[in-house]
């Protein structure tokens, strides 16, 4: 059995910035446990001598010349913003009370 526990799922929720309800944590713990047991088998054949492939087609040195292109207008940049002020995106306080 894998090591998925409710505490781990809760921690993953924090890392992934998803507020999980207790119900969700419970459900996900069970589901992920089954899924992880099934996908963990990749390590059976992933021996040290096998190189990892991150890109399906190997390319290298794909560059762009250092030339200015078309930019977004500020209206375009902000057009989907849930909240904006003074030409900038507005968010609620970043930290809670000072600790």
């Amino acid at each position: 059995m894998s090591e998925i526990t409710p505490d781990l799922v809760r921690h993953l929720g924090v890392l992934a910035r998803i507020r999980l309800s207790d119900d969700e944590v419970e459900r996900l713990t069970g589901q992920l446990d089954v899924i992880v047991d099934n996908i963990a088998k990749v390590s059976e054949v992933a021996t040290p001598d096998v190189p990892a492939t991150s890109h399906p087609i190997a390319l290298q040195n794909v560059f762009r010349p250092d030339e200015v292109g078309q930019t977004l207008t500020r209206e375009q940049a902000l057009q989907n913003a849930p909240d904006a002020a003074d030409g900038r995106f507005r968010v609620t306080a970043i930290l809670g009370e000072e600790q």
Partner: peptide, 14 residues
């Protein structure tokens, strides 16, 4: 164990 191994499986499938 997971992502790294999966990328190796990719090599094997190739």
């Amino acid at each position: 164990a997971y992502y790294g191994s999966a990328q190796k499986v990719r090599t094997l499938i190739q």
